[in-house]
């Protein structure tokens, strides 16, 4: 990559002077990934974000653009995560009738289940001798990405490691909910959906919408409430330790 001709190098420096090259690459990868995902019949283990990231990582590495320069340009997109997090409040409000109807079971299960979703993984990682940075990155593993990224930044973890953990968690949660509901003989779509959203954030919610609309609505609810609960309590809990 060092023996590029002069003209290519000057073109690269012109292109990377503005963030638009990163924006174009990200948009392109996003669109190609959506298309590939549908072509491969929506595989549970390979969500579109994984396909897009693989494509981008290949391009960024092979062209010699480098991750740092790419990421700097892509900030023009990632800055929108702030308002996008606020936007999650709208569907949460629209689910409010479910919360009102079922506030008692939600109040009993959510705080405990959302705490355990973080605590099990943190406990195991801590026992295996993980560094504080790794622990901080894994803590929001069941929280939807925009909220999780905020939590990780507050705790001083690595956002990229968090996002990797989120992907793995989302895919695993979809598979495990499938096994466990069969084993525990649970047929209530509201419970299945809530568990998918609570443990598997957006990836679990997407899976729940494939089961039924009720499961999907409860998954959105579980995802939203887990996100808010974890974002409010996890940083405070971390301060105590």
């Amino acid at each position: 990559m060092t023996d590029q001709p002069e003209i290519v190098r000057s073109l690269m420096s012109v292109w990377t002077a503005s963030p638009l090259l990163s924006v174009a690459l990200t948009l392109g990868a996003f669109i190609v990934a959506q298309w590939l995902f549908v072509r491969f019949r929506r595989p549970l283990w390979m969500p579109p974000v994984m396909i897009a990231a693989l494509l981008l990582a290949t391009v960024v590495a092979l062209t010699g653009l480098g991750f740092e320069r790419y990421e700097q340009g892509a900030r023009w997109l990632t800055v929108l995560l702030g308002p996008a997090t606020v936007a999650l409040g709208v569907p949460l409000y629209q689910q409010m009738h479910h919360i009102r109807a079922l506030w008692r079971p939600i109040l009993v299960t959510l705080p405990l289940a959302a705490t355990l979703a973080a605590a099990y993984a943190l406990g195991i990682a801590w026992l295996m001798g993980a560094t504080p940075e790794v622990l901080a990155s894994l803590a929001p593993k069941s929280v939807t990405a925009p909220i999780a990224m905020g939590i990780t930044e507050e705790l001083g973890g690595s956002v990229s490691l968090t996002l990797g953990g989120l992907l793995i968690t989302g895919v695993l949660a979809s598979l495990f909910v499938d096994w466990c509901t069969r084993w525990l003989k649970i047929t209530d779509d509201r419970i299945v959906g809530f568990a998918l959203g609570l443990n598997g954030h957006a990836i679990g919610t997407a899976r729940a919408f494939e089961i039924s609309h009720t499961a999907g609505a409860f998954a959105s609810l579980g995802m939203g409430l887990t996100g808010v609960f974890t974002a409010l309590f996890l940083p405070l809990a971390f301060l105590l330790f």
């Binding site: 990163s22 990200t26 948009l27 990868a29 996003f30 579109p48 974000v49 994984m50 897009a52 990231a53 693989l54 981008l56 990582a57 960024v60 590495a61 991750f67 790419y70 990421e71 892509a74 900030r75 997109l77 990632t78 929108l80 995560l81 308002p83 996008a84 606020v86 936007a87 999650l88 409040g89 709208v90 569907p91 990405a145 925009p146 990224m149 690595s158 956002v159 990229s160 490691l161 996002l163 990797g164 992907l167 957006a202």
Partner: peptide, 22 residues
Amino acid sequence: SQGLISILVLLITPGVVGVFFI
């Protein structure tokens, strides 16, 4: 909000790319 939520995957992709470089 629907518009932003529908492109959430696009917005988190740059961070996920970082996984391959850490």
